[in-house]
Design a protein around this nucleic acid. Sequence first.
RNA 1: GGUUCGGUAGCUCAGUUGGAUUAGAGCAGCAGCCUUCUAAGCUGCGGGUCAAGGGUUCGAGCCCCUUCCGAAUCACCA
Length: 599
Amino acid sequence: MEIAVKIINEVKKGLEELYGQQVSDNLVQLQETRPEFEGQLTLVVFPLLKMSHKKPEDTAQDVGQYLVSKVPDVISKFNVIKGFLNLTISSAQWIELLQSIQQDDSFGFIPVTDKSPLVMIEYSSPNTNKPLHLGHVRNNLLGWALANVMQANGNKVVKTNIVNDRGIHICKSMLAWLKYGNGETPESSGKKGDHLIGDYYVAFDKHYREQVKELVAQGMDEDVAKNEAPLMKEAHAMLVKWEQNDPEVRALWHKMNEWVYEGFDETYKALGVSFDKIYYESNTYLEGKEKVEEGLKKGLFYRREDGSVWADLTKEGLDEKLLLRSDGTSVYMTQDIGTAKLRFQDYPIDKMIYVVGNEQNYHFQVLSILLDKLGFKWGKDLVHFSYGMVELPNGKMKSREGTVVDADDLIATMISNARQMSKDKVNKLENITETEAQEIARIVGMGALKYFILKVDARKNMLFNPEESIDFNGNTGPFIQYTYARIRSILRKATESGIIVPEKLPTDTELNDKEIALIQHLQGFAAAVSQAGVDYNPSCIANYCYELVKEYNQFYHDFSVLREEDEKKRFIRLSLSAAVSQVIKNGMGLLGIEVPERM
RNA sequence: GGUUCGGUAGCUCAGUUGGAUUAGAGCAGCAGCCUUCUAAGCUGCGGGUCAAGGGUUCGAGCCCCUUCCGAAUCACCA
């Protein structure tokens, strides 16, 4: 049992005995003691004054004396400062706690059972007309980490992806490929499939602009010209053919989408993310129409004279929202309703989480209301896990201005920079093969990227500075990985020199402040995990790991583990190191960050 | 204009359900520390009106109100 829980129970008993009243949990506030005072845990007595009818100091004195006399093996000392009762926990208690943490591989995780709620998490959601970029990277990393955190909190998790594989955008790429491609394929060009398609999307845009410019030069209004340009007309014609199931268009669409998927798979693999179930918009966009018609019959929506269908959300404080165009085709919202329908058929979903950028906050506000009206039980409290934009030092990331950072380029750069960094450290990585060195570079490079992005509160817009992210000093992934590798090295050396830590640690050893601080901090891992689940913010975990590592580094520089002469002390320090490394591994694992055995 | 979200050190960010005279890290700057279990590290110094004002109470960076600044969104785009 956690020490804090034990103490809270004792305090409650004590209060009852001292003041003759039952106390609710929220009145017993226990927190870590500030470093400048003696003790490790502090009871805040202010909330108890109404019951004791005494001064804060006297109340604290009462409780302190009670604890020391009643449970001397837990609380060895206490002191009172104003309304704060500082408690000193006995070493034996800390050692027992350490032991229990160390023996539990999945410390801090709640096991998933048959009765656990099922949480579906949608993330990634790429378009099939261009490669993934930095914004997608944040999305994927957050989605993956969130899925891990939810699972660690005892939920069944289904990771899902909705691929936006239809629409005018993909027609643009297809058309450009037909016109300017000369039959180019990923094999013939050596390009990754998604990049190849992306290039044709850019080519379309280039030629299209030229056409518009020309038309404007001939005296046409720009807005008219944008619709009248032959390329745009052709693209629209192609979309119509696609919707009519034209075999040729469909065959081309299939072929080109396959190229893109192969490219995406490579990127996903490099990022270390995966999905349990992938939905394609081409399969779901018609489903939504049915639901909308259904809602129309029930009187939830209404039809305008031109035939378009709308939802009136003015009662909910929102606007009216279009659900079907006047020509009967579906819009974005309709598709999301359709996807929801299919998902609900496939899984007994208790909670749905959408990982989507904050530019779509309004969309999800509306979607939640619509799904609720349509009778989806999880619709009302669906979660839009909204994250901020990634900005670059020279301004916003805009694909039009060419300031977009490609995901594959970024990954490659991170890894090669990590490789360069370790090469510069002459004394490191000796006796290591080239493939091992490359693998370490991959782990470290990806760790730097992932940690840099995940440590920031998801809701906030963040600044991605490519140069800074590669700096391995400070609050970075490699700093944490490095500490892990060092601990593993100590443990290896301990085994080599025949030091075997006994099953049961000796509890009659006095601990110093730094050792206690570390054990105390380790205990906080469980809290960080549940906090991350409640807040839906994996950054809690990242910051927890960093704090732990900082604390361990101080410990590391002050004490010698292997050279410690007192055997009992050595066992405890070794055990402590092992526990720290285990928690780091688990914590980083939640973020999708690997930790190397050596680096 | 409506709605939503942000504003903490020169820069990038933490800050758990409100808690302790002195609000924390990292980077950048300065000064120390490698015969040492991996120095990608550790120690110290300087740097702040927590956007501004008011309120709630024993106590506010955190809760409430007002104002200022920034972002997103308010399409028969996705």
